[in-house]
Design a binder for these strands. Structure first.
Lengths: 213, 213
DNA sequence: TTAAAATTCACCCACCTGGGGTATAGTTCA
DNA sequence: TGAACTATACCCCAGGTGGGTGAATTTTAA
């Protein structure tokens, strides 16, 4: 029994190309090729796909919202995102929406077919670059058991750093923890030295990324 | 120039097998094959690898701790974990330790070679099952799908914001993207309005937390 | 108990920043 | 074809920030 694949892709050339690839491959068949996500439910019901090849940029709801919607309604359908976007935000949102794989438009037809079969079998094909971005993001968000490089901030310093992360300015921090403005500045300067940074932005970025606070 | 690969694997048969595969492949060479991670630094210095094929179960410090150590000391070395373990905890720890890829022992020699080349080129090969586990874990740990407000930053604004996140000051940003200092300031002010913030730290914090860039 | 941190406070100075303007050229879209 | 937006650029000004230095007091660790 061939795997039923639905295609959402607004570019006609690509859509036809994907359709041809699917139908030309043993074990795959295209059960629907659509240019937009209007009437999404109707299209899904009609195509009854097991795998969806989903473009992100599309008329109607974009591919990520469509993914979220489909996964919620038909959790058994596997969705393979295929797009030109390689920015972290898109990757992140697509994964959170429940996509099973994420490949770039530059992927070869052979690899595309492989990927469709892989998602169908429960795997998660990703283009190499995407995979490395996912790992990077993962490292960022993981509840760090990683021994955070020890900058040996004192507790007061940590306290002040976390207030800085809130975006509170130094004068207000002083008021908040009942010490003088100049003292706050002393602490801040020491924090910069310990973190090897030279500005509030850098300190904040480092604090958040490395969960120092 | 062949990619220098070091192998850490306690099973002699497998170690010899991997070594043979590397040396038998155009573009790869095994610059060291070790059964344990004792004297790790010495072994790394001796082999001077660009990619390490790392087993998890090993005498001495286990492969994950070894990964953590090597990445910290030689961040440019790419580490490809190869193991029989497919449990979430191991996967999770390996990624957090800084591994670039994670493949199973069941991987074919051809795929193994591909994977080594992929990590060397900055990609992150993962066995299909591992990849799907990573996505699952990712969904678990991802900061709760706060409906990412759309701040509709222009691409220039995003570019500048991301430079700010790097901690680069406005003058240097101007130099870097070849526009005047005052123009950068104009952009920055507009960014602040769009993000409803009033300082660089706040903007950076918001950008990182909500992955706006 | 003595040395080393941590915490507190102050002053100086140059420069950066945030907020307020204004203005022009180019693009896009209705 | 205008309106809206974007990118570019400049001005002013008050106040914030980063860096340096110095010093007193308390807490912690050796």
């Amino acid at each position: 029994m061939a795997i039923r694949v639905a295609i959402f892709e607004d570019n006609k050339l690509m859509r036809n190309g994907f359709e041809a690839i699917c139908n030309g491959t043993e074990g795959l068949m295209c059960s629907g090729a659509f240019a937009d996500s209007f009437d999404l439910d109707f299209k899904i019901k009609k195509a009854a796909p097991q795998v969806i090849l989903m473009d992100i940029e599309m008329p109607g709801t974009d591919g990520i919202a469509a993914t979220r919607h489909v996964i919620k309604k038909w959790p058994e359908i596997k969705i393979l995102i295929q797009t030109v976007f390689e920015d972290d935000d898109k990757i992140f949102k697509a994964i959170c929406a429940g996509a099973s794989g994420y490949i770039l438009k530059s992927t070869s037809p052979a690899r595309l077919v492989e990927s469709i079969i892989e998602v169908y079998n429960g795997g998660s094909p990703m283009s190499p670059y995407i995979a490395s971005r996912v790992l990077k993001l993962f490292q960022q968000f993981a509840p760090t058991e990683q021994q955070n490089e020890d900058y040996s901030l004192s507790s007061r310093e940590k306290e002040i750093l976390s207030l800085m992360v809130e975006g509170i300015n130094l004068q207000l921090i002083a008021d908040k923890i009942f010490i003088s403005y100049e003292t706050v500045r002393s602490h801040v300067k020491r924090i910069y030295k310990k973190l090897h940074v030279a500005s509030a932005s850098e300190a904040v970025a480092k604090a958040i990324r490395q969960r120092i606070i």
